[in-house]
Design a binder for these strands. Structure first.
Lengths: 136, 136
DNA sequence: GATTGACTCTATAGTTGTTATAGAGTTTAT
DNA sequence: ATAAACTCTATAACAACTATAGAGTCAATC
């Protein structure tokens, strides 16, 4: 059994984050020592790594909670899991599109000013004052 | 002179957001009517649209404040504006790269499960339990 | 003149996923 | 006994809003 500091080292999650996940029910409530310290075993390490992996894929805490719920009802069809993943993938792709558009606009704006002018002539500031392109 | 509700309609910023921008010093403090209502003129509309345009380019409120400061000191070189834009563009591109990688991982994960299995056999859940790929 | 409805005011809390802090208690080593 | 390193809970901060409560203002109608 290890304490929270060691779990933090092993998993790469900060101590506060681990406590936060416990409060949010993403990992099981830890056993406590006599002195009220949280104690973890190998299973807890695996659970936390699962959550961490999900977070690295930008799944939200409620989404992760849902996945955990599904994985605990083994008879369920995994259509639900797939639906969530599909929705998530859509969101990520939409965000990539947004940012790509944004990037083009930023680069265009940046080209409108070459250095060594005073801001009075600065094309960037002038363009920012103009009415923005339709926000997509 | 128009009141905040009208300014909101004209600019597409919510009333609360306008008040928020005022508190954060992104727009000038509005004049007040006898009854303490904020009053705005054409200049205020332009200022708010400038801020809105910057926000649509994902510039942070502090960044916008900095731009406003620069635009108010007309003798200054616009190198500073350019530096900020360059940094911002870098950030956006880094984020695009991150999300693109993420998207690949999600799609790979998604392929690991075809529908109509029970979650016991679900490739997605199985893969999420495995040690994650190095987090970029 | 009183009331209604639409608007505005301030101040405060909620959102998301952490991170940081304060103030206290516990363990381990010296 | 004491210090260092750890842990505990509870609370606030971050960003950029959004939402709410409770009160005040204004124009129009009865």
């Amino acid at each position: 059994m290890i304490k929270i500091g060691e779990l933090s080292k092993v998993t790469g999650c900060s101590v506060q984050t681990i406590r936060h996940y416990e409060k949010e029910q993403l990992i099981a409530s830890a056993e406590r020592s006599e002195g009220n310290f949280r104690l973890y075993d190998e299973v807890a390490v695996e659970q936390l790594l699962f959550v961490k992996h999900c977070r690295s894929l930008d799944l939200s805490l409620p989404e992760i909670r849902q996945l955990l719920g599904l994985s605990r009802s083994p008879g369920a069809q995994c259509d639900d899991v797939n639906r969530m993943m599909d929705r998530h993938i859509e969101q990520v792709e939409a965000r990539i599109q947004e940012l790509t558009k944004l990037n083009e606009q930023l680069r265009m704006l940046r080209r409108s000013c070459s250095n060594r002018r005073t801001v009075e002539q600065c094309g960037i500031l002038r363009n920012l004052s103009a009415t923005p392109v339709s926000s997509g």
